[in-house]
Design a protein around this nucleic acid. Structure first.
Length: 900
RNA sequence: GGGCGGUUAGCUCAGAUGGUUAGAGCGCUGCGUUGACAUCGCAGAGGUCACUGGUUCGAAUCCAGUAUCGCCCACCA
């Protein structure tokens, strides 16, 4: 073989570190991530779920990159103008917390800095982490268009956010109102319902006696017992409620009770919300500290007392308990109640406690003036944000994959409540509302220099918006909305969207609402933010625990990628589960994926070594008859694989696709085809070279969406050895799209037989413990498959290390010991040095029993007239031929047993 | 209280529209340094597909129910 060019001197093991950054640079320099805008083609667009700038990417982001990049590369290789828009999220509350923690290390609070300095400091952090995050995406191979990178506080997004706010306000869908909200006393802000996580906790139920007030205001020796888990809130009680149908309290309704310790008189009211069976059937009503009580209070005009301040400490309303933390107050109140004889008894009780999803602090329900989105309110006849969002999924304009998540999505929207969007934070989109001292309110996109109504100085609302308000605009805002940009008109609606199922409500639902609202000029089909949304599962640790910073089990995908290679990471997470299912992260899976990358590497090394400096022509179907059986077989198998991968991609079955490609390349191409070519190549037959190069080329293309780096590197090395119109890089090469040129059922059946025969030979070798170096004679008593066996005889000799010979079914054999196996119609006879008759008999008997059982099953099935009438013909025919083979096997086994 | 998902080999998991003896990786057993690869090759052991009943010619796959684990939703004083 002539000397090979230098680039073919591939090291014997794949070294990701020496390849990945160089390959990524080639892609980026080639401009392959930027789509060309072709009005004659439908683009493929996908928006990246913007990771929080709070820190670095974790495995979940790595999984998202793997999924998205696989889809993006597949579409790009279909020749579609393909755009993947990357982004980062300012993550208001989360980032503010991070910066506050940083400040705390210096002994500072944000109030020490003031708002402007605090924001300046946060921007510094953002700049640092944005580039770090982008770098991580690059290392993972994400082929996103970095020239379109979007940060959720970029000027264009600010405009989009304000425009949306103003429009919603004008449509009456945004309002300011006093409502019960979730207050985090640590973050000192309101939260939406979604930002509260509930945890079951063991607690106590305290039964407290509230004395009944007599005619002249004198306490009677009579009392009503109420049950509560939060005795400290009794300082803010303004009533006691019972169910109107509860005769135990019939005569108490309308009377006054004396609030113990405080001495305030509060009425007994009747309300349907009270469940008679719970506790005593009487509930203290604390409208300032409980959502239910707030509703009850509203219905009965009870005063609202708020006894907690913004840090959840007792305020002046708490009288003697003012200034205490709520825990202290609870202890003191319980002691005082007990001393006063008001504590009836205590029971164990488990209930769920709401915690801030960002800092795990117990959330306080308090009434507060906040900004809200009226999600169910009609802004046009029959149109509402939530209703439209549900309808788009119900009528199929938006498809959810896996489909089972549809129900979850719809159930949430059907029971949705107004969305609290204002946050008492500094970091975020400040609400575009201005107030003047004369009571005028201005709501507009641009900062007003003065009050448009009276010219007075204006002050902007200090609150910022929920982070999800801005990220919910991503699909259209990232493409330029509200400006009428070329990107927006060409790339919107986006094609696919992808996210963890855990943010379905936070993000997916909001994008659908906002997209349909802001883009409604496009009509029902054109306004949707995306056509399909994929929900992937979560990556958990080996124990199945969710990976969180507090558990300390978070893994950096780059650390993983550095050890095993980015391709291995991607392949492992994609092939590790099916869409929507959680997966456990295991190191073993990574190692397996790395091994596959290395196997591929060496496959290419072999092919390149054999091809040398030739430039081969692809096999042409017209020449089919000139090709050997194994050639026709592998080409037929490849074609089938291409068909299957295409349909798997269309069904978003990425994991299954990855597994099938691996299976083909490793188990069919390497283990059989390549091994069989060796003897031909050694004999000087060059015909397999074209097949080797062609199948490798196609295999690399198929695998590229999953393992972009190693496939690109190898393809670059292979590229010039194929005489065809080859793209400058694999990333923009055509994805294999199969015709029906090589499908060859006969070749597949014959090769399957050859493979089984070889397995049988090797099995006998292993079972009879023949020396590795021995080359025993093998007689293949063949019938129907004789030509195939004859053609592949040299390969059989080489790969199974035997001296094989094809003989007639009834051929007599020389005297000697033999090992036997039956493969379909072929009997495999391996000459042995000696044989243990007992062991052989046992083995044959077991085989016979298996074969008989199999034949019986088939006979039963085939003798069923219903089966023959209803089953498809090919199934029946297949079964019949299997039965014939199985019967032949039974006969053969019986004969050999008789011979023993 | 509603809803969803899992239960398949020792472990981690695939099995898209029901179809011939249910698969992979890891682990395990035996053999192997044959010129692509020991990150490898060859051979092998290992499964009542959680359980019960049903539909069907045929069920891991569809239906009903049971058990068990997990998740989501819900204003459980």
């Amino acid at each position: 073989m002539t000397s090979a060019p230098a680039r073919k001197d591939l090291p014997p093991a794949y070294e990701p570190a020496s390849v990945e950054s160089r390959i990524y640079e080639i892609w980026e320099r080639g401009g392959y991530f930027r789509p060309r805008v072709d009005p004659n083609q439908t683009p493929y667009t996908i928006i990246m779920p913007p990771p929080n700038v709070t820190g670095e990417l974790h495995l979940g982001h790595g999984l998202e990159d793997a999924i998205t990049d696989a889809l993006v590369r597949w579409h790009r290789m279909q020749g579609e103008p393909t755009l993947w828009v990357p982004g980062e999220d300012h993550a208001g509350i989360a980032t503010q917390n991070v910066i506050e923690r940083e400040l705390a290390k210096e002994g500072l609070s944000r109030h020490d800095l003031g708002r402007d300095a605090f924001l300046e400091r946060t921007w510094m952090w953002v700049r640092k982490y944005r580039s770090r995050i982008a770098d991580q995406h690059r290392k993972l191979g994400a082929s996103a268009d970095w020239s379109r990178d979007v940060f959720t506080m970029d000027g264009t997004i600010v405009k989009a956010v304000r425009t949306t706010f103003v429009n919603l306000y004008k449509d009456g869908l945004i309002y300011r109102g006093l409502r019960m909200i979730n207050w985090c006393p640590r973050c000192e802000t309101a939260l939406s319902d979604l930002e509260v996580d509930y945890e079951e906790e063991a607690a106590k139920l305290y039964f407290i006696r509230y004395p009944v007030v007599g005619e002249g205001g004198m306490p009677l020796p009579d009392y009503v017992v109420v049950a509560t888990t939060r005795p400290e809130t009794m300082v803010a009680d303004t009533g006691v409620a019972v169910n109107p149908s509860d005769d135990r309290y019939e005569e108490r309704v309308g009377r006054m009770l004396l609030l113990p310790l405080i001495g305030r008189e509060i009425p007994v009211v009747a309300d349907d919300a009270v469940k008679p069976e719970f506790g005593t059937g009487a509930v203290k009503v604390t409208p300032g500290h409980d959502p239910n009580d707030w509703d009850i209070g509203q219905r009965h005009n009870l005063p609202v007392i708020v006894a907690l301040d913004r840090k959840a400490a007792m305020n002046d309303e708490a009288g003697p308990y003012a200034g205490m933390s709520s825990e202290e107050a609870r202890a003191r109140i319980l002691r005082d109640l007990e001393e006063g004889g008001f504590l009836d008894h205590v029971e164990d009780h488990t209930h769920s406690v709401g915690k801030c999803s960002r800092c795990n602090t117990v959330v306080e329900p308090i009434p507060s003036e906040q900004w809200w989105v009226a999600v169910t309110k009609e802004y046009a006849p029959g149109r509402s944000l939530a209703g439209d969002a549900a309808e788009a999924v119900r009528d199929g304009r938006i498809r959810i994959v896996p489909q089972r998540f549809e129900k979850v999505y719809l159930a949430w929207l059907d029971n949705i409540r107004d969305w609290c969007i204002s946050r008492q934070l500094w970091w975020g989109h400040q609400i575009p509302v201005w107030y003047c001292p004369n009571g005028h309110t201005t709501v507009q996109v641009e900062d007003p220099p003065a009050c448009p109504d009276c010219g007075a100085v204006v002050r902007q609302d200090e609150d910022v918006l929920d982070t999800w308000f801005s990220s919910g605009l991503a699909p259209h805002a990232d493409l330029g909305w509200p400006n009428d940009t070329a990107d927006l008109s060409y790339f919107y609606p986006t094609s696919d969207m992808q996210m963890g199922y855990d943010i379905m409500f936070f993000w997916c639902a909001r994008m659908v609402m906002f997209g349909l609202y802001n883009m409604r000029d496009r009509g029902p089909a054109g306004a949707v933010p995306f056509r399909t949304v994929l929900f992937h599962g979560l990556i958990r640790d080996v124990q199945g625990e969710k990976m969180t910073k507090t558990r300390g089990n978070v893994l950096d995908p780059l650390v993983v990628a550095a050890k095993y290679g980015a391709d291995a990471f991607r392949f492992a997470v994609l092939s590790g589960a099916s869409m929507g299912a959680d997966q456990k992260y295991t190191e073993e899976r990574l190692a397996a994926a790395r091994n596959f990358a290395n196997k591929l590497w060496n496959t290419a090394r072999f092919v390149l070594l054999k091809v040398g400096d030739r430039r081969v022509r692809r096999p042409h179907p017209a020449d089919r008859e000139t090709y050997a059986l194994e050639d026709r077989w592998i080409l037929s198998r490849l074609e089938q694989l291409e068909v299957d991968i295409d349909s798997l991609f269309r069904a978003y079955q990425l994991g299954e696709a990855a597994r099938q490609i691996e299976d083909f390349l490793w188990n069919e191409f390497c283990d059989w085809y390549i091994e069989m070519t060796k003897v031909r190549l050694t004999a000087g037959d060059e015909r397999p070279l074209a097949v080797l190069a062609h199948v490798l080329d196609r295999g690399l293309r198929l695998l590229h969406p999953f393992m972009p780096f190693v496939t690109e590197e190898l393809w670059q090395a292979l590229r010039d050895h194929i005489d065809d119109d080859m793209a400058p890089a694999l990333i923009v090469a055509w994805f294999p799209k199969s015709g029906a040129n090589w499908k060859d059922a006969a070749a597949e059946a014959s090769m399957e037989h050859v493979i089984e025969v070889n397995r049988a030979i090797r099995n006998i070798r292993a079972e009879k413990k023949l020396d590795a170096g021995a080359r025993p004679r093998v007689y293949l008593r063949a019938n129907g498959h004789a030509p195939a066996l004859l053609e592949t005889l040299p390969a059989t000799a080489f790969t199974s290390r035997v001296e094989p010979e094809v003989v007639a079914p009834a051929a007599t054999l020389p005297q000697g010991e033999y090992g036997f196996a039956r493969v379909g119609e072929t009997e495999v006879v391996v000459s042995l040095p000696a044989v243990d008759a007992g062991v052989e008999r046992a083995r044959l008997e077991k085989d016979l029993a298996d074969a008989n059982a199999h034949a019986e099953r088939l006979e039963k099935q085939l003798s069923n007239p219903q089966f023959r009438a209803k089953a498809p013909a090919n199934v029946v025919a297949g079964m019949e031929s299997t039965l014939a083979e199985t019967r032949a096997r039974v006969t053969g086994l019986k004969e050999r047993l008789a011979q023993l």
